[in-house]
Design a binder for these strands. Sequence first.
DNA 1: TATGAATGAGGATTCATTCAT
DNA 2: TATGAATGAATCCTCATTCAT
Lengths: 214, 214, 214, 214
Amino acid sequence: MTSRRPAKKTAHKGRRTAIQARSKATVEAILTAAAQILEREGPEAASTNAIAARAGVSIGSLYQYFGDREAIIAELARRHVEEMRSVLSGALAELIALPLAAAIPRLMAALIASHRVNPTLDGVLHRMMPESAAIMDEFEDFAATVTAAGIRAHPDLHIADPELAGAILTQAVGGVLRTTLRRYPERILDPALERSLVQLVLGYLDRASPPAAG
Amino acid sequence: MTSRRPAKKTAHKGRRTAIQARSKATVEAILTAAAQILEREGPEAASTNAIAARAGVSIGSLYQYFGDREAIIAELARRHVEEMRSVLSGALAELIALPLAAAIPRLMAALIASHRVNPTLDGVLHRMMPESAAIMDEFEDFAATVTAAGIRAHPDLHIADPELAGAILTQAVGGVLRTTLRRYPERILDPALERSLVQLVLGYLDRASPPAAG
Amino acid sequence: MTSRRPAKKTAHKGRRTAIQARSKATVEAILTAAAQILEREGPEAASTNAIAARAGVSIGSLYQYFGDREAIIAELARRHVEEMRSVLSGALAELIALPLAAAIPRLMAALIASHRVNPTLDGVLHRMMPESAAIMDEFEDFAATVTAAGIRAHPDLHIADPELAGAILTQAVGGVLRTTLRRYPERILDPALERSLVQLVLGYLDRASPPAAG
Amino acid sequence: MTSRRPAKKTAHKGRRTAIQARSKATVEAILTAAAQILEREGPEAASTNAIAARAGVSIGSLYQYFGDREAIIAELARRHVEEMRSVLSGALAELIALPLAAAIPRLMAALIASHRVNPTLDGVLHRMMPESAAIMDEFEDFAATVTAAGIRAHPDLHIADPELAGAILTQAVGGVLRTTLRRYPERILDPALERSLVQLVLGYLDRASPPAAG
DNA sequence: TATGAATGAGGATTCATTCAT
DNA sequence: TATGAATGAATCCTCATTCAT
């Protein structure tokens, strides 16, 4: 990043690297601690002091890296969404070429997988509205966009409004997944759940296609 | 609730009634105040002091009627769920005799209507987990049960597991409705939303029926 | 205030009085404590916790009566200014009829007396700018107005701009008094100080009168 | 200030000079930054971290050159007083020979000029008591001494206590100037202000002289 | 019963200062 | 020497809850 600067600013380039490493470690410790507390004890327990304590860091350090409590939650949400998105994205590539009846089951499996990244944290962040709502919504928006694109890629479907369909399906599936995770977390592994979601989606797509010439 | 208890000790039952009326008024004032604050200013603003102040009641009185803050939220949730349930129930009676293609649209309309009872409060209560989650879930359980019963009443559907179907459909529809209410509240009136939900449900029921051969 | 209300609100009018007395006592305790700390330990020591502690009151009570720390300082300043003003006002009545050469010494004596109300607190409040500046200025404004009025009452003075003269004299005398109080507090009792101020004022008035028909 | 010390230990004095230059630059940067923040954002904003940041220097370096925060303020005050004193001194030389009626206007003009060096900073430093009071007072002491000397240089005045007169006049003029600068900063340019101060001083000197043929 | 004054633990945040590198 | 990460005491303020009247 700064390989060009000649000597100056006290020699060894190791210095800077070491410092950056320490900073990074602190930030990671804080985020990890925050996530742990949110998962295990819930949002009210996640005070800045508690986070700093569990991170093994002074409260001052915490504020050196995060402007305020909300910034911690936001960053946590951002990373969580990024993880979920990457899990989902990973499965997407191979979907494009498949026929619908094969693609949808895979998509549902991918969605379920993405919700398995950290279900508890996901639920908590979903409920911490002012802090993380906008960020969490990004995942649903992403899923909706991707779904709409997929629908558009299958013109044989004759869906009039792919955006609407994408949104509805994403919200519906999201509702099922979040409720399941919160109330019956073990069922997230039940194949019946996945099957049901596939039926939900395929059924909707059928219905939403114009009764057409058939 | 306790009208049966025989006039214990002190005189005229008129007095007692008056007192009970006053008590009731106090309780109502507190709940109304709490609901207003939750709706308009959010959960953080709903401190016991703020609730008492808006209710025009001393905090002392508030604690006379509610053991703690959570009890207020819980009672509020209970009543809210009751209202939603009654809206939904009202529409149910006439559904039973209808053919599915007619019943489902009506059911969706009723569900939407029940979510229109107090959407903001509904959202807030849904997010106040430890306080109201269990109570709020009752509505979804009720809707799921009702849906399962409806499905069972249509044996031509050949749905293997009506309970699962009821749960999935309820969670899916609930997800769509809550997301819509939170992010795009005006769309709750859009007929396209209702249409989509009908497609979602009918499509699922189609799919979940055994692949013909019946 | 509420003598009309029949019974209701739990009888005894003693109740309300007692409560008000308690509230008043708390408020007074807080203000007294704040004044003491400001005088003895300076502005930095006057934290809300320290004030509450010295007042023998919980921090919660402090905030029941004062919205924030600044409100305490402001009320203190308000009262201090009021006291100073009343000392000054008290001396004013008898001044009006006197000839200038007799009036000015009395006015100076009164000003000095008003600064003796609580010199230390006065100095501290004068330096706590955002909190109390505007309020403290009221005293100087009052003194300036009064002086200007006095000047106008002596048309033989031929002072062109009584307002300016009032302001200059007040600021000059204020400067002398505050510096003296801060740096050489014992001199506030020195008759030479008073004499000097009289000379300052009379000399200025002489000079500020047009060389006139002399 | 310390150029005399003989080259101690390490090599070439060129290096030492360079280092000293760098040190000096750092010190200057810190003081400049502190002054800027004090002027523009007030004393509370002038944290050591903020000063270091604006100076483009690490806090570590800041503490290399200043023992603590107070030392920065003190040095700032020292320099500020020095500047004011030099402005005032510059005007003094030519005053000595002048007759009083000519000297006083010039003196007032010089005092005003010295207060125009950095009025905002002056006001702030005046209010930061424990840190800078003693230092700021030096200017007033200087002005008082100079004034007393001037008075003594005019034996025709017959002032009994030139020291007292010097102090009173300095404090009075200081009071007017500081109040004006704080509350009506634009008036510092108003010629009427200067005129008034001249009248104040000359009037006082008149009055403080024995009634002549007495 | 109703009242509302009082409580104090706890939360977010700041800032002077230290010290390993 | 310079750096800047780390520290933690201290600050302001909130809020659920208690209890004397």
